[in-house]
């Protein structure tokens, strides 16, 4: 049985304006996709919460069930699920990411 409840995850994703579930941590990403997300957020000067799914199978499975999204990394802005690496990269390229961050008061 999964010990990480939906309520736990709801709290986690709302704890900061930007929250990332990734493999490894921002100092040491352990997957290219997670690393890409870290680099993009760094370029925009964003501070964020990060959770290493490799340290907990419960969080790893729990977050996939929570968002109904099959892959890691997963990015949340203002408690809302935004997407994975591809979506963040495309938002970065199109300029949409700047707009989304601006909405929550983050100037990039």
């Amino acid at each position: 049985e999964n010990t990480v409840t939906k309520e736990d995850l709801e709290k986690l994703v709302k704890n900061n304006k930007v929250v990332v579930f990734m493999k490894g941590d921002p100092e040491q990403p352990r997957c290219g996709f997670s690393n890409a997300v870290v680099q993009i957020l760094r370029m925009h000067g964003v501070t964020y919460d990060s959770h290493d799914v490799l340290s907990s199978d419960d969080i790893r499975q729990g977050i996939k069930d929570f968002t109904n999204w099959p892959t890691i990394p997963q990015v949340f802005i203002n408690g809302e699920f935004v997407g994975g690496c591809d979506i963040l990269l495309q938002m970065h390229q199109s300029g949409d990411l700047i707009e989304e961050l601006k909405k929550v008061g983050i100037k990039s």
Partner: peptide, 14 residues
Amino acid sequence: TLIQRHRLVNSALS
């Protein structure tokens, strides 16, 4: 939206 499109692809290959 981008995320809706990606969800379509993800579910096609679930």
